[in-house]
Simulated assay, not measured.
Amino acid sequence: MGVLLEVKNLGISFGGLRAVDGLNMTINEGALVGLIGPNGAGKTTAFNMLTGVYRPTDGTILLDGKSLVGKKPAEICQEGVARTFQNIRLFTQMSVLDNVKVALHNSIRYNLATSFLHLPSYFSKEKEMDEEALKILKIFELDTYADTNASNLPYGKQRKLEIARALATNPKLLLLDEPAAGMNPNETKELMETIELIRKEFKVTILLIEHDMKLVSGICEYLYVLNFGTELAHGTPAEVLNDPKVVKAYLGE
């Protein structure tokens, strides 16, 4: 498989603060890669640059050889990049089904007149979206909650729903921002199984930020480590997690 994401000398400054400096990453199609580091290392800032929330001060971001720098978040989503957030961002007063259907509008569309006038094609597209959303929810074992308000789901299932919604945009690259945050050990174990299932069912490349080293070492094939905005190390989990520089950054010793 070829290279899907290539990041070269990526950096961003906020006033006099250099938040990320000289980040380089190469991620192949189908890979599962972790971006780790202590709190405040610049990981979420890197995600925000990859998704167009922040425009880099310097450097390049190539997806399938095509530059993403300067594109808006919606445009980057259409190019094939989806993400979740450390703090869950669901439409809490909408049903589980409708949360996924919102994302499907990226690929299943009808025009304004069709929607307002409820023409036959409107009902056809709605049926298509219902079926596709239920198919995705079934993979995550959330189909029985289809009519439930998202706010009424247990925490672990809300996490799964956010991932399901991101996948409904049919991404090439899925960015997971601390997916295990706030989870108990059983929920974390279930999340690991879910991520492996995602790779099998959706053939998607995954880049994740995570502090749970058991999860990281259990599922990631390769790791990049940030510390104070700069790359500290990269390699396999075994290489990185036994690197004295990485141990020192995490433990402060």
Rank of each mutant, 00 (worst) to 15 (best):
M1W: 08
M1F: 10
G2L: 06
L4M: 14
K8Y: 05
K8G: 00
L10Q: 08
G11M: 01
G11R: 00
G11P: 01
I12R: 04
G15D: 09
G16H: 09
G16D: 08
V20F: 01
D21R: 11
L23Q: 05
N28S: 14
A31E: 15
A31I: 03
G34K: 14
N39Q: 10
T44C: 04
T44F: 03
T45Y: 02
T51E: 12
T51K: 04
Y54I: 00
R55E: 15
P56I: 08
I61T: 12
L62T: 09
D64F: 08
G65E: 06
K72N: 01
P73M: 09
P73F: 09
I76D: 13
C77Y: 05
Q78T: 07
G80P: 02
G80T: 06
G80L: 05
T84D: 07
I88A: 08
L90R: 13
N99A: 07
K101N: 04
K101Q: 10
V102Y: 07
V102P: 12
A103C: 09
Y110F: 13
L112K: 10
A113E: 09
F116A: 11
L117D: 11
L119T: 15
Y122H: 12
Y122T: 00
F123W: 15
E132D: 07
A133T: 13
A133N: 08
K135V: 03
K135Q: 11
L137K: 02
F140E: 02
T144A: 14
Y145C: 12
A146W: 01
D147R: 07
N149D: 14
A150H: 09
S151E: 15
P154R: 00
Y155F: 15
K160T: 01
A164E: 11
A166G: 02
A166P: 11
T169P: 03
N170K: 15
K172H: 10
L174C: 07
L175Q: 03
A181N: 06
G182Y: 08
M183P: 00
M183S: 04
P185V: 10
N186E: 13
T188F: 02
L191H: 14
M192C: 07
M192G: 15
T194V: 04
R199H: 06
E201T: 08
V204E: 08
E210C: 05
H211R: 13
D212H: 10
V216L: 06
E221H: 10
H234R: 15
T236S: 15
P237N: 00
A238R: 02
A238Y: 02
V240I: 05
P244H: 12
P244I: 09
A249N: 05
L251G: 03
